[in-house]
């Protein structure tokens, strides 16, 4: 039993080393890591995140008018006690991770918009915005992911992704996602 444990730990360490390199073949292994046991220790490097991501959405009304863009609150200002207690960091991290996956899909694989719409990060963002309160008479919702560059921005904000208009479920019908877009 102890020999098995020793072998398992040795193998886990070797795989942990391999995990630090961006081998394409290893991504297939990482994709299967549902338990999250393959560590990635390259924090904020070699490409440090130097921007904030914002999830925004707007509604299309039955008469075709569009509402104002509004932001989904995920980036609350940190409190003085955040060095001890910071539950808000979890929501922000999900969005950061989702955007990074989407950005990779767009830039490296050149994914078509239709393929993007089926990706989990896209569906995650769509799911979140779809459950927000709607404008009176809204029939469709569109979301976007916007990138801003700091407290004293050196660049204009960038729009990373704009979704199509997704049909909202009829009020009272339920929360099933409607992936049809116009």
């Amino acid at each position: 039993m102890n020999a098995i444990i020793a072998v398992v730990l040795a193998a886990w360490f070797v795989v942990s080393i391999l995990s630090q390199f961006s081998f394409k073949w290893f991504e297939r292994v990482r994709h299967r890591d549902v338990f999250g046991l393959l560590p990635l220790w390259t924090f904020f490097a070699p490409n440090p995140g130097q921007s904030d991501y914002h999830l925004v959405c707007r509604d299309k009304l039955a008469d075709g008018r569009l509402s104002q863009w509004r932001e989904v609150e995920l980036n609350e200002p940190r409190k003085w006690y955040s060095l001890l207690w910071n539950p808000e960091k979890r929501g922000k991290k999900v969005l950061v991770d989702a955007v990074q996956v989407l950005a990779e899909l767009v830039t490296t694989s050149g994914a078509q918009k239709s393929a993007l719409m089926l990706s989990t990060p896209y569906l995650l963002a769509l799911n979140v915005v779809s459950h927000l309160e709607r404008e009176q008479g809204a029939t469709h919702r569109q979301f976007a992911i916007v990138e801003t560059f700091g407290f004293t921005p050196s660049s204009e904000m960038e729009v990373l992704l704009v979704s199509g208009f997704h049909a909202l479920p009829r009020e009272g019908v339920g929360n099933a996602l409607h992936a049809s877009s116009l």
Partner: peptide, 18 residues
């Protein structure tokens, strides 16, 4: 990372609300 070697990464990260 050129961003880190130049030191720009430190400011870049601290200049975010996240």
């Amino acid at each position: 990372s050129p961003e880190w070697r130049s030191g720009r990464a430190i400011f870049g990260i601290f200049n975010t609300t996240t």
